[in-house]
Amino acid sequence: MIVADRKPLKEILEMVGDSKKVLILGCKGCVTVCNVGGNKEVGILASTLKIARAKEGRPLEVEEKALERQCDPEYVDQIKDIVEDYDAVISMACGVGPQFLSERYPGKRFFPAVNTTFFGGAVQHGIWEERCAGCGACGIHHFGGLCPIARCSKSLLNGPCGGSADGKCEISKDVVCIWDLIVKKKMEEGHLDELMIFRPPKVWTTARDGGPRKSVREELVQ
């Protein structure tokens, strides 16, 4: 899933500025699963903003809503009859949400309430970790099913650097050296020799280096 963290309240309040009536729009996709932008968090942010503004003597009217997803036009369309009622819309979706909204409703202001951080998963309740860098050409099968691009601090593809010690990365003892795990996994698989196979340098044009990306499925395009 796409993982995000809520922005500091000060930053959100600055964005809201002098608005008198706002809509906080959650998303029932990834950000609901990572507990940052679903119905629940929309409610918490709404209450917090109302408290903050009431304290300043500038009451803020806040409506709460969550769309099935903010990354599909048919769901973004669902606020077409109400969007004009608000001075601004605060999106709690990942960075895709406020962009889809901005494109669909020209002339309206949309603010992001979260910082989108990475593609990852929950390693335990309340803790998420990065697992994928979205490079556009997955090769994790070469590395025992573990991604050195997303999980090595230097994205090294040819083995660990000198900063690997006791299975930890030199940047922090909380970060595992993924190359340590890759080697161990390959040993367990009995395929350590596969790490010796020569592989040409990775072509990064499928990643962001090739510019903004697009995926077209002809069989679905109408």
């Binding site: 500091p8 309240l9 000060k10 309040l13 918490i44 917090t48 408290i51 903050a52 304290k55």
Partner: peptide, 8 residues
């Protein structure tokens, strides 16, 4: 934490 962030 939230209250502290908004100055309460």
């Amino acid at each position: 934490n939230v209250l502290e962030e908004i100055g309460i």
